[in-house]
Design a protein around this nucleic acid. Structure first.
Lengths: 174, 174
DNA sequence: CTAATCTTTCAAAAAATACTGAAAATAGGC
DNA sequence: GCCTATTTTCAGTATTTTTTGAAAGATTAG
Protein backbone atom coordinates (compact mmCIF):
# COMPACT_ATOMS: atom_id res chain seq x y z
CA UNK A 1 0.00 0.00 0.00
CA UNK A 2 1.45 3.36 -1.02
CA UNK A 3 1.48 6.37 1.29
CA UNK A 4 -1.24 7.80 -0.89
CA UNK A 5 -3.42 4.75 -0.49
CA UNK A 6 -2.86 4.79 3.25
CA UNK A 7 -3.97 8.41 3.35
CA UNK A 8 -7.13 7.50 1.50
CA UNK A 9 -7.87 4.90 4.14
CA UNK A 10 -7.20 7.29 7.02
CA UNK A 11 -9.44 9.90 5.41
CA UNK A 12 -12.22 7.41 4.81
CA UNK A 13 -12.05 6.19 8.37
CA UNK A 14 -12.14 9.70 9.76
CA UNK A 15 -15.09 10.54 7.52
CA UNK A 16 -16.89 7.48 8.76
CA UNK A 17 -16.28 8.33 12.42
CA UNK A 18 -17.46 11.90 11.93
CA UNK A 19 -20.57 10.96 9.99
CA UNK A 20 -21.48 8.14 12.35
CA UNK A 21 -21.33 10.69 15.14
CA UNK A 22 -23.74 13.05 13.39
CA UNK A 23 -26.07 10.16 12.57
CA UNK A 24 -26.02 9.19 16.21
CA UNK A 25 -27.35 12.57 17.28
CA UNK A 26 -30.19 12.22 14.77
CA UNK A 27 -31.10 8.90 16.33
CA UNK A 28 -31.04 10.32 19.82
CA UNK A 29 -27.59 8.97 20.69
CA UNK A 30 -24.83 11.17 21.92
CA UNK A 31 -22.26 12.16 19.34
CA UNK A 32 -19.18 11.03 21.22
CA UNK A 33 -20.68 7.68 22.06
CA UNK A 34 -21.41 7.07 18.39
CA UNK A 35 -17.89 8.12 17.43
CA UNK A 36 -16.30 5.84 19.99
CA UNK A 37 -18.42 3.05 18.59
CA UNK A 38 -17.36 3.87 15.04
CA UNK A 39 -13.71 4.00 16.09
CA UNK A 40 -13.71 0.64 17.81
CA UNK A 41 -15.87 -1.04 15.21
CA UNK A 42 -13.22 -0.29 12.61
CA UNK A 43 -10.21 -1.12 14.76
CA UNK A 44 -8.70 -4.59 14.50
CA UNK A 45 -7.40 -4.40 18.09
CA UNK A 46 -9.06 -3.65 21.41
CA UNK A 47 -8.20 -0.13 22.62
CA UNK A 48 -7.54 1.39 26.03
CA UNK A 49 -9.27 4.49 27.40
CA UNK A 50 -6.11 6.51 26.73
CA UNK A 51 -5.91 5.37 23.14
CA UNK A 52 -9.52 6.36 22.56
CA UNK A 53 -8.91 9.76 24.18
CA UNK A 54 -5.93 10.28 21.92
CA UNK A 55 -7.65 9.10 18.74
CA UNK A 56 -10.77 11.25 19.18
CA UNK A 57 -9.17 14.08 21.14
CA UNK A 58 -11.63 13.91 24.00
CA UNK A 59 -11.33 14.10 27.78
CA UNK A 60 -10.91 11.13 30.09
CA UNK A 61 -14.35 11.60 31.65
CA UNK A 62 -16.02 11.71 28.28
CA UNK A 63 -14.16 8.67 26.98
CA UNK A 64 -14.90 6.75 30.14
CA UNK A 65 -18.61 7.52 30.11
CA UNK A 66 -19.03 6.61 26.46
CA UNK A 67 -17.08 3.39 26.76
CA UNK A 68 -19.02 2.19 29.77
CA UNK A 69 -22.33 3.11 28.19
CA UNK A 70 -21.43 1.12 25.09
CA UNK A 71 -20.51 -1.84 27.29
CA UNK A 72 -23.99 -1.47 28.81
CA UNK A 73 -25.50 -1.70 25.34
CA UNK A 74 -23.47 -4.88 24.71
CA UNK A 75 -21.76 -3.19 21.81
CA UNK A 76 -18.35 -3.36 23.47
CA UNK A 77 -16.63 -5.99 25.57
CA UNK A 78 -13.99 -5.37 28.22
CA UNK A 79 -10.74 -7.23 27.62
CA UNK A 80 -7.81 -7.59 29.98
CA UNK A 81 -4.42 -8.43 28.58
CA UNK A 82 -2.05 -10.46 30.70
CA UNK A 83 0.73 -8.41 32.21
CA UNK A 84 -1.36 -5.25 31.62
CA UNK A 85 -3.29 -3.66 34.40
CA UNK A 86 -5.66 -1.55 32.36
CA UNK A 87 -8.87 -2.40 30.60
CA UNK A 88 -9.15 -2.66 26.85
CA UNK A 89 -12.35 -2.35 24.87
CA UNK A 90 -13.26 -4.45 21.88
CA UNK A 91 -16.26 -3.86 19.63
CA UNK A 92 -18.82 -6.39 18.50
CA UNK A 93 -18.25 -6.50 14.75
CA UNK A 94 -21.00 -8.82 13.57
CA UNK A 95 -23.61 -6.49 12.06
CA UNK A 96 -26.45 -8.80 12.97
CA UNK A 97 -25.40 -8.86 16.63
CA UNK A 98 -25.01 -5.08 16.58
CA UNK A 99 -28.55 -4.78 15.28
CA UNK A 100 -29.85 -7.14 17.94
CA UNK A 101 -28.12 -5.22 20.72
CA UNK A 102 -29.48 -1.88 19.54
CA UNK A 103 -32.98 -3.27 19.03
CA UNK A 104 -33.02 -4.86 22.48
CA UNK A 105 -31.91 -1.68 24.16
CA UNK A 106 -34.29 0.62 22.29
CA UNK A 107 -37.20 -1.66 23.02
CA UNK A 108 -36.39 -1.71 26.70
CA UNK A 109 -35.81 2.03 26.99
CA UNK A 110 -38.38 3.45 24.59
CA UNK A 111 -40.98 1.08 23.22
CA UNK A 112 -41.95 -0.62 26.47
CA UNK A 113 -42.44 2.59 28.47
CA UNK A 114 -44.40 4.13 25.57
CA UNK A 115 -46.66 1.12 25.43
CA UNK A 116 -47.38 1.46 29.13
CA UNK A 117 -48.39 5.08 28.72
CA UNK A 118 -50.66 4.28 25.80
CA UNK A 119 -52.33 1.34 27.52
CA UNK A 120 -52.80 3.31 30.68
CA UNK A 121 -54.35 6.25 28.81
CA UNK A 122 -56.69 3.90 26.96
CA UNK A 123 -57.67 2.24 30.20
CA UNK A 124 -58.39 5.44 32.09
CA UNK A 125 -60.87 6.59 29.47
CA UNK A 126 -62.55 3.31 28.60
CA UNK A 127 -66.30 3.52 28.10
CA UNK A 128 -66.64 7.26 28.64
CA UNK A 129 -69.01 9.21 26.37
CA UNK A 130 -68.34 12.41 24.38
CA UNK A 131 -66.70 13.19 21.04
CA UNK A 132 -63.37 14.26 22.44
CA UNK A 133 -63.00 11.43 24.97
CA UNK A 134 -63.94 8.91 22.35
CA UNK A 135 -61.46 10.31 19.85
CA UNK A 136 -58.82 10.13 22.53
CA UNK A 137 -59.64 6.63 23.64
CA UNK A 138 -59.81 5.29 20.10
CA UNK A 139 -56.43 6.81 19.25
CA UNK A 140 -54.77 5.46 22.38
CA UNK A 141 -56.18 1.98 21.80
CA UNK A 142 -55.12 1.86 18.19
CA UNK A 143 -51.65 3.21 18.90
CA UNK A 144 -51.18 0.70 21.72
CA UNK A 145 -52.20 -2.19 19.50
CA UNK A 146 -50.00 -1.02 16.69
CA UNK A 147 -46.91 -0.42 18.81
CA UNK A 148 -47.41 -3.77 20.45
CA UNK A 149 -47.63 -5.47 17.05
CA UNK A 150 -44.51 -3.78 15.69
CA UNK A 151 -42.64 -4.50 18.88
CA UNK A 152 -43.51 -8.16 18.69
CA UNK A 153 -42.39 -8.28 15.05
CA UNK A 154 -39.13 -6.74 16.18
CA UNK A 155 -38.72 -9.46 18.79
CA UNK A 156 -39.24 -12.20 16.25
CA UNK A 157 -36.80 -10.60 13.85
CA UNK A 158 -34.20 -10.09 16.57
CA UNK A 159 -34.44 -13.71 17.60
CA UNK A 160 -33.60 -15.02 14.18
CA UNK A 161 -30.21 -16.59 14.50
CA UNK A 162 -28.90 -15.28 11.22
CA UNK A 163 -29.23 -12.31 9.00
CA UNK A 164 -29.89 -14.88 6.31
CA UNK A 165 -33.23 -15.57 7.90
CA UNK A 166 -34.10 -11.97 7.28
CA UNK A 167 -33.34 -12.29 3.60
CA UNK A 168 -35.87 -15.08 3.56
CA UNK A 169 -38.42 -12.94 5.35
CA UNK A 170 -37.75 -10.23 2.80
CA UNK A 171 -38.57 -12.66 0.03
CA UNK A 172 -41.83 -13.59 1.70
CA UNK A 173 -42.79 -9.96 2.12
CA UNK A 174 -42.21 -9.01 -1.51
CA UNK B 1 -70.02 11.83 31.88
CA UNK B 2 -69.49 13.21 35.38
CA UNK B 3 -67.16 16.10 36.13
CA UNK B 4 -64.87 13.57 37.75
CA UNK B 5 -64.79 11.41 34.63
CA UNK B 6 -64.10 14.44 32.52
CA UNK B 7 -61.18 15.34 34.75
CA UNK B 8 -59.80 11.84 34.35
CA UNK B 9 -59.90 12.30 30.58
CA UNK B 10 -58.23 15.71 30.71
CA UNK B 11 -55.50 14.32 32.96
CA UNK B 12 -54.95 11.31 30.74
CA UNK B 13 -54.69 13.51 27.67
CA UNK B 14 -52.24 15.84 29.34
CA UNK B 15 -50.18 12.88 30.50
CA UNK B 16 -50.12 11.55 26.96
CA UNK B 17 -49.02 14.87 25.48
CA UNK B 18 -46.25 15.26 28.04
CA UNK B 19 -44.96 11.72 27.66
CA UNK B 20 -45.13 11.79 23.89
CA UNK B 21 -42.99 14.91 24.05
CA UNK B 22 -40.33 13.21 26.17
CA UNK B 23 -40.40 10.16 23.92
CA UNK B 24 -39.89 12.42 20.96
CA UNK B 25 -36.64 13.77 22.34
CA UNK B 26 -35.39 10.21 22.79
CA UNK B 27 -36.15 9.53 19.16
CA UNK B 28 -34.31 12.63 18.03
CA UNK B 29 -37.47 14.67 17.51
CA UNK B 30 -37.98 18.02 19.16
CA UNK B 31 -40.16 17.99 22.24
CA UNK B 32 -42.62 20.66 21.10
CA UNK B 33 -43.10 19.07 17.72
CA UNK B 34 -43.98 15.78 19.38
CA UNK B 35 -46.38 17.51 21.74
CA UNK B 36 -48.13 19.35 18.93
CA UNK B 37 -48.49 16.03 17.18
CA UNK B 38 -49.92 14.39 20.31
CA UNK B 39 -52.34 17.27 20.78
CA UNK B 40 -53.71 17.18 17.27
CA UNK B 41 -53.76 13.42 17.04
CA UNK B 42 -56.15 13.35 19.98
CA UNK B 43 -58.31 16.28 18.90
CA UNK B 44 -61.50 15.58 16.98
CA UNK B 45 -61.34 18.98 15.22
CA UNK B 46 -58.65 20.73 13.24
CA UNK B 47 -56.96 23.47 15.27
CA UNK B 48 -55.57 26.90 14.43
CA UNK B 49 -52.10 28.14 15.33
CA UNK B 50 -53.60 30.26 18.11
CA UNK B 51 -55.46 27.34 19.60
CA UNK B 52 -52.29 25.25 19.64
CA UNK B 53 -50.37 28.14 21.25
CA UNK B 54 -53.05 28.41 23.92
CA UNK B 55 -53.32 24.67 24.56
CA UNK B 56 -49.58 24.07 24.94
CA UNK B 57 -48.65 27.52 26.22
CA UNK B 58 -45.99 28.10 23.61
CA UNK B 59 -45.01 31.07 21.45
CA UNK B 60 -46.29 31.78 17.98
CA UNK B 61 -42.92 31.15 16.39
CA UNK B 62 -42.56 27.81 18.10
CA UNK B 63 -46.08 26.70 17.22
CA UNK B 64 -45.65 27.80 13.64
CA UNK B 65 -42.36 25.97 13.16
CA UNK B 66 -43.66 22.74 14.67
CA UNK B 67 -46.90 22.81 12.69
CA UNK B 68 -45.17 23.38 9.39
CA UNK B 69 -42.56 20.74 10.10
CA UNK B 70 -45.31 18.22 10.85
CA UNK B 71 -47.03 19.16 7.59
CA UNK B 72 -43.68 18.43 5.90
CA UNK B 73 -43.68 14.98 7.47
CA UNK B 74 -47.21 14.41 6.15
CA UNK B 75 -48.46 13.97 9.69
CA UNK B 76 -50.70 17.04 9.48
CA UNK B 77 -52.88 18.48 6.74
CA UNK B 78 -53.77 22.14 6.31
CA UNK B 79 -57.49 22.82 6.26
CA UNK B 80 -59.23 26.05 5.36
CA UNK B 81 -62.74 26.65 6.60
CA UNK B 82 -65.07 28.73 4.46
CA UNK B 83 -65.59 32.23 5.75
CA UNK B 84 -62.40 31.88 7.83
CA UNK B 85 -59.18 33.37 6.67
CA UNK B 86 -56.79 31.38 8.83
CA UNK B 87 -55.32 27.94 8.44
CA UNK B 88 -56.38 24.99 10.53
CA UNK B 89 -54.34 21.87 11.07
CA UNK B 90 -55.71 18.37 11.16
CA UNK B 91 -53.74 15.27 12.13
CA UNK B 92 -53.55 12.00 10.28
CA UNK B 93 -55.18 9.58 12.71
CA UNK B 94 -54.72 6.25 10.96
CA UNK B 95 -51.86 4.59 12.84
CA UNK B 96 -50.73 2.71 9.77
CA UNK B 97 -50.45 5.93 7.76
CA UNK B 98 -48.64 7.60 10.63
CA UNK B 99 -46.14 4.77 10.63
CA UNK B 100 -45.68 5.01 6.87
CA UNK B 101 -45.08 8.75 7.05
CA UNK B 102 -42.50 8.44 9.80
CA UNK B 103 -40.75 5.54 8.09
CA UNK B 104 -40.60 7.38 4.77
CA UNK B 105 -39.16 10.48 6.35
CA UNK B 106 -36.58 8.71 8.49
CA UNK B 107 -35.43 6.68 5.52
CA UNK B 108 -35.00 9.79 3.42
CA UNK B 109 -33.25 11.80 6.11
CA UNK B 110 -31.18 9.18 7.86
CA UNK B 111 -30.93 5.78 6.24
CA UNK B 112 -30.20 6.88 2.69
CA UNK B 113 -27.42 9.35 3.60
CA UNK B 114 -25.88 6.75 5.94
CA UNK B 115 -25.89 4.19 3.19
CA UNK B 116 -24.08 6.58 0.91
CA UNK B 117 -21.35 7.16 3.47
CA UNK B 118 -20.91 3.45 4.05
CA UNK B 119 -20.80 2.58 0.38
CA UNK B 120 -18.41 5.39 -0.33
CA UNK B 121 -16.10 4.33 2.50
CA UNK B 122 -16.16 0.75 1.28
CA UNK B 123 -15.42 1.87 -2.24
CA UNK B 124 -12.49 4.10 -1.34
CA UNK B 125 -10.69 1.27 0.41
CA UNK B 126 -11.49 -1.62 -1.90
CA UNK B 127 -8.64 -4.01 -2.54
CA UNK B 128 -6.07 -2.31 -0.29
CA UNK B 129 -3.80 -4.50 1.86
CA UNK B 130 -3.11 -4.28 5.59
CA UNK B 131 -4.88 -5.49 8.72
CA UNK B 132 -6.45 -2.18 9.61
CA UNK B 133 -7.61 -1.27 6.11
CA UNK B 134 -9.06 -4.70 5.64
CA UNK B 135 -10.90 -4.55 8.95
CA UNK B 136 -12.29 -1.20 7.95
CA UNK B 137 -13.31 -2.24 4.45
CA UNK B 138 -14.96 -5.43 5.68
CA UNK B 139 -16.94 -3.54 8.29
CA UNK B 140 -18.09 -0.87 5.84
CA UNK B 141 -19.13 -3.46 3.29
CA UNK B 142 -21.07 -5.53 5.79
CA UNK B 143 -22.77 -2.51 7.33
CA UNK B 144 -23.74 -1.21 3.90
CA UNK B 145 -25.24 -4.55 2.90
CA UNK B 146 -27.09 -4.85 6.16
CA UNK B 147 -28.51 -1.34 6.16
CA UNK B 148 -29.55 -1.78 2.57
CA UNK B 149 -31.36 -5.02 3.43
CA UNK B 150 -33.18 -3.54 6.41
CA UNK B 151 -34.10 -0.49 4.43
CA UNK B 152 -35.57 -2.58 1.66
CA UNK B 153 -37.56 -4.59 4.20
CA UNK B 154 -38.87 -1.31 5.54
CA UNK B 155 -39.95 -0.31 2.06
CA UNK B 156 -41.86 -3.50 1.53
CA UNK B 157 -43.54 -3.22 4.90
CA UNK B 158 -44.46 0.41 4.31
CA UNK B 159 -46.01 -0.44 0.98
CA UNK B 160 -48.40 -2.94 2.43
CA UNK B 161 -51.80 -1.41 2.06
CA UNK B 162 -53.05 -2.52 5.44
CA UNK B 163 -51.78 -3.10 8.91
CA UNK B 164 -53.56 -6.43 8.56
CA UNK B 165 -50.91 -7.48 6.09
CA UNK B 166 -48.39 -7.01 8.82
CA UNK B 167 -50.25 -9.30 11.14
CA UNK B 168 -49.93 -11.90 8.43
CA UNK B 169 -46.25 -11.24 8.10
CA UNK B 170 -45.95 -11.59 11.84
CA UNK B 171 -47.56 -14.98 11.66
CA UNK B 172 -45.14 -16.09 8.97
CA UNK B 173 -42.18 -14.91 10.99
CA UNK B 174 -43.15 -16.76 14.17
C1' DC C 1 0.85 -1.24 54.56
C1' DT C 2 2.33 2.10 50.76
C1' DA C 3 2.87 3.60 46.38
C1' DA C 4 1.66 3.45 41.78
C1' DT C 5 -1.70 2.89 38.36
C1' DC C 6 -6.04 2.99 36.74
C1' DT C 7 -11.15 3.98 37.12
C1' DT C 8 -15.00 6.69 38.46
C1' DT C 9 -17.47 10.74 39.74
C1' DC C 10 -19.15 15.30 39.37
C1' DA C 11 -19.23 20.49 39.63
C1' DA C 12 -18.33 23.93 36.54
C1' DA C 13 -17.76 25.49 31.68
C1' DA C 14 -18.79 25.11 26.94
C1' DA C 15 -21.56 23.93 23.21
C1' DA C 16 -25.70 22.80 21.03
C1' DT C 17 -30.51 23.26 20.71
C1' DA C 18 -34.97 25.19 21.38
C1' DC C 19 -38.03 29.15 22.27
C1' DT C 20 -39.66 33.82 22.35
C1' DG C 21 -41.57 37.85 20.62
C1' DA C 22 -41.52 41.45 17.75
C1' DA C 23 -40.82 42.95 13.09
C1' DA C 24 -41.24 41.91 8.24
C1' DA C 25 -43.58 39.73 4.66
C1' DT C 26 -47.63 37.99 2.46
C1' DA C 27 -52.45 37.65 1.18
C1' DG C 28 -57.33 39.06 1.11
C1' DG C 29 -61.06 42.32 1.03
C1' DC C 30 -62.69 46.62 -0.27
C1' DG D 1 -54.35 51.70 -4.21
C1' DC D 2 -54.98 51.04 1.40
C1' DC D 3 -56.12 48.56 5.60
C1' DT D 4 -56.36 44.33 8.22
C1' DA D 5 -55.67 39.56 9.28
C1' DT D 6 -52.49 36.09 9.10
C1' DT D 7 -48.08 33.84 8.26
C1' DT D 8 -43.17 33.75 8.34
C1' DT D 9 -38.63 34.89 9.80
C1' DC D 10 -34.89 35.52 12.89
C1' DA D 11 -31.83 37.87 16.38
C1' DG D 12 -31.51 37.46 21.02
C1' DT D 13 -32.43 34.69 25.18
C1' DA D 14 -33.15 30.63 27.74
C1' DT D 15 -32.73 25.88 28.39
C1' DT D 16 -30.78 21.49 27.91
C1' DT D 17 -27.11 18.58 26.89
C1' DT D 18 -22.41 17.50 26.56
C1' DT D 19 -17.69 17.91 27.85
C1' DT D 20 -13.87 18.90 30.69
C1' DG D 21 -10.52 18.16 34.17
C1' DA D 22 -9.34 17.56 38.57
C1' DA D 23 -10.27 15.13 42.79
C1' DA D 24 -11.77 10.97 45.01
C1' DG D 25 -12.08 6.06 44.91
C1' DA D 26 -10.49 1.52 43.64
C1' DT D 27 -7.23 -2.11 42.77
C1' DT D 28 -2.88 -4.40 42.36
C1' DA D 29 2.10 -5.15 43.21
C1' DG D 30 5.67 -5.20 46.06
Amino acid sequence: MTADERQKFLDAREEFITRWGVMGTQWGINRTMAQVHALLMTNPEAMSTDEVMEALQISRGNAHTSLKELVGWDLLRIITKKGERKEFFEAEKDVWKIFQAVARERKRREIDPALQVLENCADETKGLKGTDVETFNKQMTELAEFVSLVSSMGDKAANMAQSRAMQMALKILS
